[in-house]
Structure formats: structure tokens, C-alpha cells
């Protein structure tokens, strides 16, 4: 039999948790269910099409259409290429910067911390617009400068767009992750560092063998968030697409969804594709968590 105090405790817990569950249901579960519902229907018309439209039940055919569409599948390949460039550069760069700041070498520590973090304070859309200005031939001073040096490069071509998009994201996120890593480095016990010094380890050896392993959970978490964020890649390529449509309107999976919904008015296909992206992100984040957890075991 539950004591009155236990019952009261449970009631308080329910009360305190209810705002979370209320919001979670309203802004996460409800849209998910609505998308699942939408994904089962398709809009059909007949003849010339001027007699109106009707919504018909389509079963899982929207999912089949998304999966069999090369444009949708290619989007994931683009994400893979993007991750292969972006994650090592961004996480590696953030780690190196954090280690430099943490080492005895750094001068004007808080200035650099702020300066490197500053790009993250610029909203993503604005950042993308600024970068696209620098990428656009005829407008960009950078391209003019390169051209006067005899180098001609098209940042907006389909071949270079992965680099261009990754570059914007690196600029935006490196400082942010550096701050996280730097904070984690502050928590490394001084005894361990002192012991390393006594054992004769230099600065580089200490960084690689003591500091990095000790902040591994922070790095793993950053990688996890970055992977999930990368699957949802949208803002940067969308702005690049507006400057030059060479990359195509379905370059990343999220762009595919947007094109399906708002260019082609195919909401069923868009809903099915979004749920597939969500599913993929869930599976991938599960894999990343498992992988990093296994790695941390001795």
C-alpha cells in the first residue's frame, strides 16, 4: 500500500512533468502523427484537371515512390559526402582550437574564445546569405581577387557545392563546439595532468593521450548532434540553390521534401519522405551512440 507521502510525491511528479508532456505531444507527436496520416493519401484529378481534385487513400505507395526515386536516394549520398568533409574538419578543428586554448601557449584566451564563437551568434540564414554573396560571380570580391590571380572557380557548381555548404557550416559551428570542448577540458583533473608532466609527457603527448581520451564523451556527443544536424541539411544549400540552381532543387533529402510539397503540391510524397528521413536519423543516431559507447569501454 502506497503511503500518503508517496502518493503525494507521485502527484507532484505528474504535475511537474505535465508541461513537458503537453508540449511534447503538441509540437512533436501531433505533427508526426499528422505527417503519418498525410503520407497515406494522394491527390488525384482527372481529364484536363479543371474539374477539381480528390484525396484518395494510397496505402504505402508514397513511401515506395520516395524510396524508388533516384533524386531522393541521391540526397543521402550528398549528405554522406558532406559529412565526410564537414565532420572531420569541424570536429577536428574545434578540438585543436580547444586544446590550443587550454594549453599554456594561448594568450588573450577569452578574446579568442569570444572571437571564434562569434560566427555562431549570426543566424544560420544570414550566415548563408553572406557566404552566398561571397560565392556569387560578378558580386563577390573574393572571386574577383582570385580571378586577378589567374584562378577561376565556381563555388556554386554542382561539383563544388558540397565544399561550399560544408565551409559555411564549419564557419558557423566550429566555435560553438570549441567552447563545449574547452569547457570539458576545464573539467580534466589537474592531478592527471600533473602526473603526466611528472612522467615526462610533453604538451602534445598530454593533449593526445590524456586530454582527448578524457573529453571523449563530449566529443561523441558533438559528433552525434552534428550527424543529426547534417541529415537535416537545408538552409545553406537552399540559399546556394537560390543563387544558382545548378545543384538542383532536390539536392538534399530535406530539399526534396520541400520541392515535393511546395513546388509539386505533392503533400503525400513529402510527408512520406520526411518520415523516412526521421527514421533514418533515428537509426543513425542509435548507431552513433552504440558505437561511441562501445569505444569508451576499456
Amino acid at each position: 500500500m502506497a503511503s500518503p507521502s508517496a502518493r503525494g510525491q507521485r502527484r507532484t511528479a505528474a504535475l511537474l512533468l505535465s508541461p513537458f508532456f503537453g508540449l511534447f505531444a503538441a509540437v512533436t507527436l501531433a505533427p508526426l502523427l499528422y505527417a503519418a496520416w498525410l503520407s497515406l493519401f494522394t491527390t488525384r484529378t482527372s481529364g484536363l484537371g479543371f474539374g477539381g481534385t480528390e484525396n484518395i487513400f494510397a496505402g504505402l505507395s508514397n513511401y515506395a515512390r520516395a524510396l524508388s526515386d533516384e533524386a531522393f536516394r541521391d540526397g543521402f549520398l550528398v549528405i554522406a559526402a558532406y559529412c565526410a568533409i564537414y565532420i572531420p574538419v569541424m570536429i577536428g578543428g574545434a578540438l585543436v582550437l580547444a586544446l590550443l586554448l587550454d594549453s599554456g601557449l594561448a594568450k588573450a584566451r577569452s578574446f579568442f574564445q569570444l572571437a571564434l564563437f562569434l560566427p555562431h551568434a549570426v543566424p544560420g540564414l544570414i550566415a548563408a546569405l553572406i557566404w552566398v554573396y561571397l560565392y556569387t560571380p560578378g558580386l563577390s570580391p573574393v572571386i574577383d581577387l582570385l580571378r586577378s590571380g589567374g584562378i577561376s572557380v565556381n563555388f556554386l557548381s554542382v561539383d563544388n557545392a558540397v565544399f561550399s555548404a560544408a565551409n559555411i557550416a564549419v564557419w558557423e559551428w566550429m566555435g560553438y563546439n570549441m567552447v563545449i570542448f574547452y569547457a570539458a577540458l576545464q573539467a580534466v583533473p589537474r592531478e592527471a595532468l600533473d602526473a603526466a608532466k611528472v612522467d615526462g609527457a610533453g604538451a602534445v603527448r598530454t593533449a593526445l593521450s590524456i586530454k582527448v581520451p578524457m573529453i571523449r564523451p563530449a566529443v561523441a556527443l558533438a559528433v552525434l548532434f552534428t550527424v543529426i544536424g547534417s541529415i537535416q541539411l537545408f538552409t545553406e544549400p537552399k540559399v546556394i540553390y537560390n543563387a544558382s540552381s545548378a545543384i538542383g532543387s532536390s539536392w538534399t533529402p530535406n530539399m526534396y521534401v520541400q520541392t515535393a510539397a511546395f513546388q509539386n503540391n505533392d503533400f503525400g510524397l513529402a510527408a512520406a519522405a520526411s518520415l523516412l528521413i526521421a527514421l533514418f536519423a533515428a537509426v543513425l543516431s542509435f548507431a552513433v551512440t552504440r558505437f561511441s559507447r562501445r569505444g569508451s569501454k576499456p
Binding site: 494522394t42 491527390t43 488525384r44 484529378t45 482527372s46 481529364g47 484536363l48 484537371g49 509539386n264 505533392d266
Partner: peptide, 9 residues
């Protein structure tokens, strides 16, 4: 392809 998808003749 898109017109067929919509059911247009």
C-alpha cells in the same frame, strides 16, 4: 511523370 501522378489524361 508528374501529370500521370496527378491522374491527368
Amino acid at each position: 511523370a508528374q501529370m500521370k501522378q496527378r491522374g491527368l489524361q
